[in-house]
Design a protein around this nucleic acid. Structure first.
Lengths: 207, 207
DNA sequence: TAGATTGTTAATCGATTAACAATC
DNA sequence: TAGATTGTTAATCGATTAACAATC
């Protein structure tokens, strides 16, 4: 089967967040594509197609089983697995990521935090001891870590990327301002620089 | 003339960041669409179209004048104006936004920070005194603030949005996990929830 | 049964890329 | 001049939306 496209994956995450929140509010065991679509401001056909793409089949006249849908999404997106990660870069944003308690429900666990500068090393950030960068590669190797999260003030240099990849990392989640080009086979997700949003806002606010 | 689409605006911001960084590294007064395209991994035709859309015209055989291009983008995206903003929500992420020194070069200035809880009020976050939410509306009105930045733990309730809009806010930059639906005429930019990126990563890492 | 909802194909829409004459 | 680069039209591609028979 075709791998799922990024846009589909992102929508699946949104369906999942909507459905789990909705379950907390109301007890209904089923949901229609129209209800999901309305909440997320997209087309109902899109919702049905996405759910069909992961093997879900709705019931005429009542819609989709919420538990079944949540379970299927969880499995497809790998939330039922444990994803161990290292954080590299322990500035303010790194602290936010370390402190964020919401990751665990998606299977993500930050196992260690590494900081470049002398000053950082040994300090505690959000309850995590900051380890020296030297210790990163051995840690990743021995713990078989597959995900690295990059945050400022990390510079994602060629050398750092090479070290991560040879240590065995298979995905990079990049929160630094620099775009990272992925080595083949390695997934790189560049979270947009803050400022990108400003382009739309500045244009709108402009006289 | 047609208003520029969001995707075009975002690419313009990326061109701008690339060109300004590049100028710091090398002195060349011109740049070709192919050079920009290669650095940003897009098609050169796209670059030429985007630049044409804001009135820039290149020179055969040499490309575009870097200073001219930067200036034009700055004007179109409103970086040459002063955008005054209030921040609502002074958790960790709010602190990151307050501390971020890079906004000023895009014309963005956070003039005041407001926090909901009693505990927050009066504390200092990144050098800013946290003001009580009650003070938000008068502040926005008297200073004619046009942009509100929302950060956790703010809940973007209907009531809060109404208050912002009646106070005169014209754009909302939303960093909370909740999607905000824009009242007509008001631009809302929802920065994706952290977890959206995890969908792609989880799918890739899944065994 | 009647009617709401699905699953799926076809049509539309918009964005990206290719092609190439015009230009410096 | 020769050749690299632009500006722009046409072709392609992919994503979104419309339509509607099948289903429960």
């Amino acid at each position: 089967m075709e791998p799922l496209k990024r846009l589909v994956l992102e929508r699946l995450m949104e369906y999942y967040r909507f459905l789990t929140e909705r379950t907390a509010r109301m007890a209904s065991p089923t949901v229609t594509s129209a209800q999901i679509a309305k909440a997320l401001d997209i087309d109902p056909t899109q919702v049905r197609k996405d759910l069909a793409a992961i093997g879900l089949t709705g019931m005429g006249r009542v819609g989709f089983d919420v538990h079944e849908a949540c379970y299927a999404i969880r499995v497809v997106l790998g939330f039922d697995q444990k994803h161990e990660a290292v954080l590299i870069g322990t500035g303010h944003l790194g602290g936010v990521l370390l402190a964020y308690s919401g990751f665990a429900r998606y299977g993500l666990h930050i196992m260690a935090a590494f900081g470049g500068g002398e000053e950082a090393t040994g300090r505690k950030v959000a309850g995590h001891r900051v380890r020296p960068m030297k210790a990163m590669k051995p840690f990743v190797k021995t713990h078989r870590i597959r995900l690295a999260i990059l945050a400022p003030p990390t510079e994602p240099s060629e050398r750092l990327l090479r070290r991560l990849v040879t240590a065995g990392v298979q995905a990079i989640w990049n929160f630094t301002p620099s775009q990272v080009a992925g080595p083949p086979g390695i997934l790189v997700r560049n979270e947009q620089h803050f400022s990108v949003g400003l382009s739309e806002i500045g244009y709108h606010l402009k006289r």
